[in-house]
Amino acid sequence: MKNLLDPRTKIIIAMFFTILVVASRTLSWLLPQWGVLIVLVVAIGKGRAYARWLRLSLPMALFFGAVTWWTADWKTGLMAALALLNLVSVFFVFFSTTTPEDLGNSLVKAGLPYPVAFVFSTSLQFVPVIGRKAKNVLDAQRARGIPLEPGWSALRHYPAFLGPLLIQAFQLAEELAAAMEARGFGRPGRTFYRDYRMGPTDWLAVAITFLLLTACLILQRM
């Protein structure tokens, strides 16, 4: 499933879906779209992860809807919330079927500078590393009586948190840079281990989704 389609194909399909969501103005269009997305999620076996993820995303969509409701009317608000939810769900499906590395590397073939793709595909690796360091700093400071529980009181002690964390983070960056350099990061003529090529399946998928998109758009306008 994961490697059925080239990452670029998936981007194109995701873009089509985005256009469709953005062009939809009624609940009778937006709700089925969400339905399709949920079916997709279940089909790729990410139902559980999606449920967890919804818990985080739903409040955001609702907040956004509320703001819109407040400045316009409730119908627009509801639609805005649903549209946002659909959009970020497209994101979710896309990223649960594509590793950042595949995406980054295939985009290099499409002209993205390699260092940018590298940042994109590598950053996710270092989120837990920084998270662990942050936790260690909090623990170390709290252990000697410097209060760093979240909230206003922590603000006064911010240097105690940010200081050690940033210094370590920048040392990490230096070490990472040295390691990258020592493995030939800057050397021209890089090849890619994984082959990214748009095959017949890819073109077929693009064509089919394109037709579907056009059909939906025409139907909507009728």
Binding site: S123, E174, A177
Partner: peptide, 26 residues
Amino acid sequence: SDTRKAAYAVVLVAIGVALAPYTSFP
């Protein structure tokens, strides 16, 4: 150098994502 900039960018992104839970205040 590009290498250093890329490495710093990686770490800054990680900070931007990982720190969000610690730095929000009402």
